[in-house]
């Protein structure tokens, strides 16, 4: 027997789902017209304004009553909380300043260490050069009086020549 004949209600889920979606679409279409209507929005706005003004006035009168009874009001508590918030703000600013100072100190320290490393390296380099020069000097000094080289002899003989000319003169 086909399903629709054995089940007079048909598929209940499908039927209810379809009904819901039709209803939702109709309702949404209707609300869409209302919710975008400037007249409706104006009325809601006015209503909201009256509501919040009433709430404000009520709050003020509660505060005044409590004040007359020498009891702390909501405004008093808010003021105290605000003071602690402002103190917290100042602490945060100080924390910021400390962190920035820490950063600057760190960067200064880094630069100082870098400069010290550079100067130490330069000193080491100079010391090495000096040691090299000293070694060369010592080597030169420790050399026995060497026999004159050909060049030296030539220079010496060249130096002698003008003297000989003088003698000739």
């Amino acid at each position: 027997m086909p399903e629709h004949m054995s089940n007079p209600f048909g598929d209940f889920d499908k039927l209810s789902g379809d009904m819901y979606r039709h209803w939702e679409k109709a309702m949404t279409d209707w609300w869409d017209q209302i919710l975008d209507d400037p007249g409706f929005l104006g009325a809601v706005g006015k209503n909201l304004e009256v509501g919040v003004r009433t709430r404000g006035t009520y709050q003020k009168s509660v505060d005044e009553t409590l004040e007359r009874m020498h009891l702390p009001t909501r405004s008093d508590l808010t003021r105290l909380a605000r003071i602690s918030s402002l103190l917290e703000d100042r602490l945060l600013s100080m924390e910021d300043t400390l962190l920035e100072l820490g950063d600057k100190m760190e960067s200064l320290e880094r630069e100082t260490i870098k400069a010290r490393i550079e100067s130490t390296e330069t000193r080491l380099e100079l010391r090495e050069r000096l040691a090299g020069l000293e070694a060369r000097l010592e080597a030169l000094e420790s050399k026995p009086a060497a026999k004159p080289t050909a060049r030296r002899t030539a220079r010496k003989s060249a130096a002698r020549k003008p003297a000989a000319k003088k003698d000739d003169a």
Partner: peptide, 18 residues
């Protein structure tokens, strides 16, 4: 559309509710 200065009572809300 809703946030229209003509209809949305912004100042009243903040002034009265904080």
């Amino acid at each position: 559309t809703w946030a229209d200065p003509e209809t949305f009572p912004l100042d009243a809300i903040v002034d009265n509710l904080g």
